[in-house]
Nucleic acid binder design. Sequence first.
DNA 1: CTGAAAGCGCTTACAG
DNA 2: CTGAAAGCGCTTACAG
Lengths: 338, 338
Amino acid sequence: MARQRSQSVTLTDVARRAGVSVATASKALNARDEVAPETRRRVLQAADELSFQPNVLARGLISGRTRTIGLLTDELAGRFSIPILLGVENALGSEQMSVLLCDARGDAIRRRHYIRTLLARQVDGFIILGDSNDVRPSLTGDIPVPVVYVYGESDDPNDLSLLADDADGARLATEHLVSLGRRNIAHITGPENYRAARDRVASLRDVLDGAGLSLIGGEPLYGEWSQRWGRHAARMLLSSYPEIDAIFCGNDQIATGVANTLRDLGRRIPDDVSIVGYDNWHEFAADCQPPLTTVDLNLQQLGETAVKHLFAALDGQPSSGVIRQPCRLVVRDSTGPA
Amino acid sequence: MARQRSQSVTLTDVARRAGVSVATASKALNARDEVAPETRRRVLQAADELSFQPNVLARGLISGRTRTIGLLTDELAGRFSIPILLGVENALGSEQMSVLLCDARGDAIRRRHYIRTLLARQVDGFIILGDSNDVRPSLTGDIPVPVVYVYGESDDPNDLSLLADDADGARLATEHLVSLGRRNIAHITGPENYRAARDRVASLRDVLDGAGLSLIGGEPLYGEWSQRWGRHAARMLLSSYPEIDAIFCGNDQIATGVANTLRDLGRRIPDDVSIVGYDNWHEFAADCQPPLTTVDLNLQQLGETAVKHLFAALDGQPSSGVIRQPCRLVVRDSTGPA
DNA sequence: CTGAAAGCGCTTACAG
DNA sequence: CTGAAAGCGCTTACAG
């Protein structure tokens, strides 16, 4: 590895080789029209021969735009950052923008530190990823460039927050079960202190009400986002309410645990009990036995949308408020007609 | 969001407020010793009052060092990039370096494109993440700054490649099973065209040979990295070789599938059959029924090590060749004495 | 100890 | 159409 940084080729080198001034070389390379065709040809050729790559730092110093955005995540290791990050990266790439990545790991100190760092690096804007749909303090006050909040809502309504639409996702799941003729529907989900969990419960209730149904047990089973909890909850539920014919689960891990326990108990899926998961985490949902019908949050698209809004803001067209992006139901074998 | 970029405060502003020249202000802020204490105090105060943040671009233009490294991944969505990325980010953060992230998505064109982009942004060095342990063409020829390859080996021995030690991982797993008194050990793993899969098989065989044992069925079962394959393979294996008392699996998903099928078949884990997974993917391994003994690749540490080597190279102390980092056995409930 | 000057690599009015 | 000059924000010899 490691040859030392070969002093890279500079515009001066290109100009010299083409026999013009740096000013002219610059204009030729930037396709400004005040350059003679023949001159431009010579400059382009020289640049090509030298593999000239303009120094983006110098350019940024002049223009004040670095074509770089800061991506501040809260928990990269979590489930949701990566797809969003991919969407962001994708959308930025096609615009020749790059992303400086920082993971604050849920630490407020580190978050401020990274904001300063990224500002010192003159990023043109920020995308701030949350790790849950919960509301969090705005950071925009410290940031003199456009900011978009994604997957975590800022508490300042003047900020723009882009969220997955939990009510929509729960509605899709519940309507699907109801339309299949399921009448005895239970809900096993994560901790009650997650807003996403509560929002989905509210939406689930709305749909059931509308269909003249009520939730089995009257209340959802709040617990953890794990298979283990799914197994445990399924066992409890089935022993108290053997008439259950559908379980809507708060994520695919819970759903996987539920599915395994139902099999252990001799219940057929979906014939006896339909199961719907949430998240469409491929390794769990598609590889479950049977594969899970689940709600996809369209996270990658969420990232792309964030970039779109950020660009708009950079062009002087900022938005604000909360935008909730619809979910998508992915139907697999774990649900079927009653 | 989106106040337009407020023209940020510059060293000139600080100098003016402190009543000194920019040269002196610069020296004061950079703790060079040729500044009178009182002058320094005034400058620091002015900087503080103005929330001055030096423009890293300008600094980089002078020093030729941007304190930025380019992280080129091949498949960010895959399992292995994230922990490594976290390790890198962690190690860089403590050195005030930032990371520009690009995901080539396994596309060679995109990879070259990103290399050019990152070079134009004057990164001080590269970390190139592979998505499997397989050997791949070196990219160093195009890169005039230090490069470290991680989790994917460069075909140029002059490059430095940092890999997880598959032979070590398989050895740990197999020795563990043998030491528990298991004698009829089978192996279910992923596709044979993965070098990692083949390397582990070789190591597994070595350990079995040394213990006077041979692999059940004579050959490992190569297949996919999925639960589904684990289920299918377990069923086949158990019907042909009911004497099996241990199964070493190529990853935690396969192991999960195996565990579920063993339960369906009425085999007790670990009493009748011990299971070892691979990867220590927490959501699968720790949440399996029972929790899986598995091999941890220490990926985060791999990322940290990569940064260490990159810094050494930046300091003119490059290394080369292949370094394999040891794995770690995580013992949970899926293995026990025979 | 302080500051004027040169320069990092580039772009952009402005003369010619 | 071309090039000399100024300047982006900063640092660093070099005089004083």
